[in-house]
Write a protein that binds this DNA or RNA. Structure first.
Lengths: 341, 341
DNA sequence: GACGCGTTTGCATAGCTATGCAAACATCTG
DNA sequence: CAGATGTTTGCATAGCTATGCAAACGCGTC
């Protein structure tokens, strides 16, 4: 704490070389003789010296840190996304400054904090993205990459999963299996990805069946509990859905449990269920949920590619847009054993 | 990027004041007149200036960053722990530098990286803690706090859940309900917390029943899959356990699914299951798992308290040790409806 | 207006490393 | 051995803000 940390000057003195030599010893492609480097390393080990990146930040203007803004790690999908991102950024040589945004901390404040530490870029993995968010990000003047959020602006790149197409595909699968009473279980309305999935699902149904409104829409908030109660209440009202598309897997798991608890229906015989995200829990034997896999490896790879482009470009405000196809993972929840006519 | 960022000097010039005035305007308890501050803020807004914390780090020796080392965010417990920690540290005014440790990145390398950014402290939330880990942390010379890891050393503090007591309690509950063929499903042997839970469980059983070995021990690795296969194989060998204590909830969920799939047994009528961690999935209707809740709020509060102590002490190497009691959460998986004699 | 006191402002500097440049050194060639 | 070429080393400095100190200022009192 108070006791001053060992500096390169201390090491230099101890090794009988100049401070520059110490600096060069720790930089990989610097002009320094093996002998000197050895002497420096020895002295460094003796003094327990650790290189200090802070001054280098000031000189180079690069901090090597990427600000990552997250919300809701209680959703396993986001937790896994963060894990992938952390590993990938680390392998690319970046450090991660993590900020959690919730009611107590506005997005703006989070960005201010990240900016004051001079992060080289900001990556947001938030379900919601408002117009305000976009404005803040643009003003920030730091390159930004947004996952699953339709934020557009100079210096802002976006990586999306193909939500609309997935919604359509879910509808087609249900139509093939003769689903007549489809239900859409929505996430929060602020969630742009959820809105797109809905649009794909609904439009595919009305295209086939005419303009009449066929799909019942229920409202959830992306949590397990909301999925459970939404479906429980719906069943209590003696509704008999035969196809359920949920905006995410957590709600789909809740829905499956509500179906099981209700007892009258069973999945997949009477009702098929499709989710979104491919969280590990969906693969658990109690659920065996058919779902769309957001290819995390691909999403994260796209992010690192954009980062590379950002840092190779001189001063341009890169603004890429990548769409990653989601893969359908078929499991038991859509394996109709006997068709209900 | 290349274009230089706005500095306090730029703002000073634009506002017609000195650079010191700009600095003081952004520091809350500094001697500056409201009028000057207003002028500075106006100029700062016009130029889109953001204060720069990097030089302050050099001057004060405090970075305001806490290094957080995690592994396995695929376990919801660790994901939630990280979320709590992130919020708590942020509220305490710290930034978080997140590092993920796995096979590709050794703990030592992670610590080196954190040290080079001069984090004020390191918090590890890893299941495993070896002697090597302890040595690295001690040599690091940065205050450290370890969750659920029996690492001891100067400057290293530990926050543990009372694993031994919980193991005992699990055994007592089973004994009260007349469990005769208890099974322990272990986590990885490197997991110290798992070893303690086992010890409590086994010792409580042998204390009551004499010295004979009553508890069957199965080996898992803290994942859902390992719990599932361990129990499936055990049942396939025609074993008939009536009490199962799992080292964590993920394995317990897997075990419950294996029981359900097998079909002969049912929980809780024939076999009771107890887990550890209280992950949200354990509360899902498909599982309704009785478990020990590691009070995350309390764990994290303890961490911030220790941090406060560390930073208030002048140069002492604080070495605290806190044990947080785990609360038993009783759910259906232990609600024996008809006693099996 | 002179004086005193509290407030505000600017000056100058510290904090630590990376790097351009020039000097010193090593190595090789004819 | 002179000279040329390549390598290694040290010097000096830049990078940006917070803060101690002294100067300047504002205000009230006699």
């Amino acid at each position: 704490m108070i006791k001053r940390l060992i500096t390169s000057v201390d090491v230099a003195r101890h090794a009988g070389v100049s401070q520059s030599a110490v600096s060069r010893a720790f930089s990989s492609n610097a002009s320094i003789s093996p002998a000197t480097r050895a002497k420096v390393f020895e002295a460094a080990a003796a003094l327990n010296y650790r290189p200090n990146r802070i001054p280098a930040i000031m000189l180079s203007g690069r901090s090597g840190m990427i600000g990552v803004v997250v919300g809701g790690l209680s959703n396993p999908f986001y937790a896994l996304a963060l894990e992938h991102l952390t590993i990938s950024l680390r392998d690319a040589g970046f450090q991660i400054m993590l900020v959690h945004v919730d009611d107590a901390l506005t997005f703006d404040t989070a960005l201010d904090q990240l900016a004051s530490y001079r992060v080289d870029a900001v990556i947001t993995a938030l379900a919601v993205g408002t117009r305000e968010t976009a404005r803040s990000l643009t003003e920030l003047n730091i390159p930004a990459i947004c996952f699953n959020s339709r934020i557009i602006g100079p210096g802002i790149s976006t990586i999306l999963s193909n939500n609309y197409a997935s919604g359509s595909l879910a509808a087609h699968i249900m139509q093939e299996q003769g689903v007549a009473r489809p239900v859409w279980l929505a996430g929060p309305t602020r969630n742009a990805a959820s809105r797109e999935r809905r649009r794909g699902f609904l439009e595919a149904f009305s295209a086939r069946q005419g303009t009449g409104k066929i799909v019942t829409e229920l409202q959830g908030d992306d949590t397990y509990e909301s999925g459970f109660t939404a479906i429980r209440e719906y069943l209590r009202q003696d509704h008999r859905p035969d196809g359920l598309f949920c905006s995410n897997d957590l709600m789909a798991c809740g829905a499956l449990d509500a179906l099981r608890d209700h007892g009258v229906f069973s999945c997949p015989e009477d009702v098929m269920v499709i989710g979104y995200d491919n969280i590990p829990q969906g693969a658990w034997h109690a659920y065996q949920l058919t779902t769309f896999s957001q290819n995390l490896a691909a999403l994260v790879e796209a992010a690192t590619e954009i980062l590379a482009k950002i840092f190779s470009a001189p001063a341009a405000r890169i603004s890429q847009r990548r769409v990653i196809e989601a893969d359908l993972i078929v499991r038991r929840s859509t394996k109709r054993t006997a068709p209900t006519s």
